[in-house]
Design a binder for these strands. Structure first.
Lengths: 114, 114
DNA sequence: CGGTATCCGATAGGATACTG
DNA sequence: CAGTATCCTATCGGATACCG
């Protein structure tokens, strides 16, 4: 029936849109991926995430920090060292990343074979 | 080691960015979800995907069709009936959607509990 | 090193009106 | 019903320059 379809659809749509709101844009997931292998410094992330500018990384890191996905740490050494790391909450994104990676590979192959 | 980290990171980053390029924006995945339960007509999708305008749906459906994720069918009846359906290729997005749904629920709970 | 400030163009996306 | 046309704003994202 149509009504059941609609209700079922909503149950998926709402959380997916919640997720998309937080992960939107070109850079958030790439940044998170770069951090999956351990905390990194600003300059290291710039090198890892090809094409990102200082300005975008700065802005995106702030967004991610506000949303509780990234933790910024200032080491009180001289000179000061600043690192970014994933929070436990963003480590739960592993499934999303793996699904996207796997589909992206499939899609890439498909596109190249056309 | 750092070099291994970098290489491993690239192996994930490239396909994920391929995927993001195709699925970017606010509406593509919601539209695909709405179509997961079977082909739908334009007006039905508008109703299902809350908040989308005619203009955006029109544009996004065209994008999805170009990328081989949606199939548009014109039934030669009177009056003409037009439907949109997922292609086999976009059905392989199930894993991505399920991962996002599951993480979105977790994230929603976390946000509301703060 | 780890950013911020400023400026700018391109795109996303919304509102409204209209059409065959 | 299934869109298109037009217009508008907001945000994305790049370039460049600069700072402590």
């Amino acid at each position: 029936m149509d009504e059941r379809n609609h209700v079922q659809c909503l149950g998926i749509l709402r959380p997916v849109r919640d997720a998309l709101d937080v992960l939107n844009g070109k850079w958030k997931l790439p940044i998170i991926i770069a951090l999956t292998f351990g905390e990194k410094r600003f300059g290291e992330i710039v090198k890892e995430v090809e094409g990102i500018t200082d300005r975008m990384l700065s802005k995106e890191l702030r967004d991610l920090e506000i949303n509780g996905l990234v933790k910024r740490t200032v080491y009180d050494t001289y000179p000061v060292k600043i690192t970014y790391a994933l929070t436990p909450h963003s480590q739960s994104l592993n499934g999303v990343i793996e699904a996207l990676r796997s589909w992206g590979e499939l899609h890439g192959k498909k596109v190249r074979s056309e």
